[in-house]
Structures are given as structure tokens and as C-alpha cells.
Amino acid sequence: MADATPLPHEIRPDGGSEHWDVNEVVEAEWVDDTTPFERVYAIVRRAYEPASAGEIAERARVSPTTARKHLRTLESAGEVATSQDGQTTQYRRSETAIVTENAQSLLAEQTPDEIAAGIADMKAQIQEWREKYDVDSPEEFARELEIDDADTNHGGLLREWQTTRRNLALAQAALAIGEASQTGHLTGSETDYDGDGSTSTIV
């Protein structure tokens, strides 16, 4: 995940003028030491909830026009996803960017062989659940058993299945990124049933 350390402009004074002065100094240094693009990118990396270009511009200490220009660049690069709130375009970190960042973190913690072993274990576990309950996905499992209480045993299994499926996708992405770093391109064409009623190609 992204570093939880607050950005300089996010450091809040605790009420004293001395702390406010420190905050202003740190923010000024942040502006002096970074480009407008770097500040917009730093803000949008933490924008898991939609925010307008104006809001991002204010936090990044740039003009709304500059923010929109850099946000368009980041959207083209797949780092930013957009949505509409009336006439206002909202921006947030894209799911692809989040998965890629998490996959890279996983690669830093585990070797490709360890990740591959984990993938095999998770696939085996998911297959066991499918065969035991005669369903293909956790959503179908919930519908068949009419699960409406997350505190029940079946509710706990539902959450575990969904988490395992997410972790499997993350591990597959990490393995693909690791392979790409070695070969210079993404490879692999194994088709995997991803558990939600559709198929996806592992790259």
C-alpha cells in the first residue's frame, strides 16, 4: 500500500502559532523541492475517494488548470480513474495503479517461487470450496445459502473466499510484473477461471 506518512501540507497544527509556522515552512519547502506534476501525482496517489480537480489543485498548491493538465496525463498513463458528479469530473487513484503498487510490494517481500507456491495453494483452496459447495464463486455461494449474516460460519467463509480471490489476483499480477522485469515484456497465456463466472487470462 502507499506510504501512510502524511504529506507536508497534511501536517496539522495543534493550535499553537509556533506549530502553524512550522507547518508553513514545511509546506513551502515541499513546493520549492517538487514540480507541479510531482505534487499532483503525490496527492492523487492518496486519492482513493473521488476528488475534483479544484480540490486536488488546492492540496497540491497548483492552479486548477495545471492540475487538470497533469491529471489528464496521469489518466492516460492508467494512474487515474475518473467519474462524473453532475458537471464535475472527479478523480481518484485507479484500481490498476493500486493493484500494481501492491503487487510490487509483494515482490519486494517474497521471491517469485514463493509467490507461485502461494498461487497454487490459493487455487487449490478455491477449487476445494467450489467442489464442496457445488458453486463457482463466492457470490453464487452467498445466493445459494441466502447468507445475510456476516457473523455466521458461512458468512465468515464467504469473506475468506472473497479475500482469497483478491489475494490470488494480486499474486498473479505480482508474478507477471516480476516476469516482465526479467524478460522486458509480459508473457503467459494460461487461462484461469477466476471464480466469478468469467474467465481471465493470466499475463
Rank of each mutant, 00 (worst) to 15 (best):
P8I: 03
E10G: 07
E10S: 08
I11N: 04
R12E: 14
P13L: 08
D14C: 11
G15M: 08
G15P: 06
G15Y: 09
G16F: 05
G16S: 15
W20G: 10
D21I: 08
E24L: 14
V25K: 10
V25G: 05
V25F: 05
E27M: 12
E29R: 13
V31K: 12
D33V: 05
T34V: 07
P36T: 07
P36F: 07
E38W: 04
R39V: 04
Y41W: 12
A42M: 04
R46V: 02
Y48D: 15
A51L: 13
G54V: 06
G54S: 12
E55W: 03
I56L: 04
I56R: 00
A57N: 02
E58A: 10
E58Y: 03
A60K: 01
A60Y: 01
P64V: 06
P64G: 10
P64F: 04
T65L: 14
L74K: 00
A77M: 14
E79I: 08
A81Q: 15
A81E: 15
T82E: 10
S83E: 15
Q84T: 13
D85L: 13
Q87H: 15
T88W: 04
T89S: 08
E95P: 05
E101P: 01
E101R: 12
N102T: 07
A103S: 08
S105L: 13
S105A: 15
A108S: 13
E109K: 13
E109V: 04
Q110L: 09
Q110N: 08
P112S: 05
E114R: 08
G118P: 02
G118R: 09
I119Y: 00
D121A: 10
E128Y: 09
W129N: 08
W129Y: 14
E131I: 08
D134G: 03
S137W: 00
S137V: 03
E139Y: 09
F141N: 00
F141Y: 12
R143L: 13
E144Q: 14
I147T: 04
A150M: 10
N153L: 12
H154E: 15
G155V: 01
G155K: 01
G156R: 11
G156N: 09
G156W: 05
L157D: 06
E160T: 14
T163R: 09
T163I: 09
T164C: 05
R166I: 05
R166T: 10
N167A: 08
A171M: 04
A171G: 00
Q172D: 07
A174W: 00
A176G: 09
T183K: 14
T183L: 14
G184K: 06
L186T: 08
D194C: 12
G195P: 05
G197M: 07
S198M: 04
I202D: 13
V203F: 14
